[in-house]
């Protein structure tokens, strides 16, 4: 039975079947990988580049980055502070979710994009205080609409910068490459 099957595989029809199977598996894998590389769907297609073009600083909407561990995603009240004075807000279909959210009082369910695993404890404040700019990790937002990651936040990415910043300072290197600095 199995021998007959292998014999059939060597015939033209069998070879075509093998080829189609491989192609299907390959395209499925490629599709899966491409899915994991796309930024997640957001309730509003928030255009970062337009807001930055108006001269709004990162810390205006994400003030937590300078004060504590989490940068935070602004509440609708903050969006509404500017947007209720803009006529386009009332008419635009793209901004309808924001208008609905403010009227009904239900918060927008933003999807976090830049994330680290649970076993990593990240603190924005220390990085901002050390003179790092947002774009060093998050990329140039003036070219992005919906936030996306310019790189994967893995340990190599963190340590590359940590060792570079420490340089010849041995005490700082010990502190910045200590496991307990990020993992606890």
């Amino acid at each position: 039975m199995i021998k007959r099957f292998f014999d059939w595989l060597k015939k033209p029809l069998g070879l075509i079947a093998v080829g189609i199977t491989f192609l299907a598996l390959f395209s499925l894998a490629a599709y899966g990988i491409s899915l994991s590389q796309q930024p997640p769907a957001q309730p509003v297609q928030f255009p970062h580049k337009i807001h930055i073009a108006f001269g709004i600083q990162c810390l205006y909407c994400h003030p937590g980055a300078a004060k504590g561990p989490a940068a935070g995603i602004p509440a609708e009240a903050k969006c509404w502070g500017c947007h209720n004075q803009i006529v386009k807000t009332q008419t635009s279909i793209l901004l309808k979710p924001l208008k609905d959210s403010v009227i009904s009082g239900t918060p927008l369910q933003w999807v976090p994009v830049a994330q680290v695993p649970d076993f990593v404890q990240f603190n924005h404040r220390a990085h901002i205080a050390a003179g790092q700019n947002c774009e060093n990790c998050h990329g140039d937002m003036s070219k992005m609409t919906v936030a996306e990651n310019p790189q994967i936040f893995n340990m190599g990415f963190c340590l590359k910068c940590h060792t570079k910043v420490a340089g010849e300072n041995h005490d700082l290197l010990v502190k910045l490459t200590d496991c307990g600095t990020c993992h606890y």
Partner: peptide, 14 residues
């Protein structure tokens, strides 16, 4: 591992 910075015994869960 031993934390050189804090002199503690760490457990790196990952």
């Amino acid at each position: 591992v031993h934390s050189q910075a804090e002199q503690l015994n760490l457990q790196v869960y990952n």
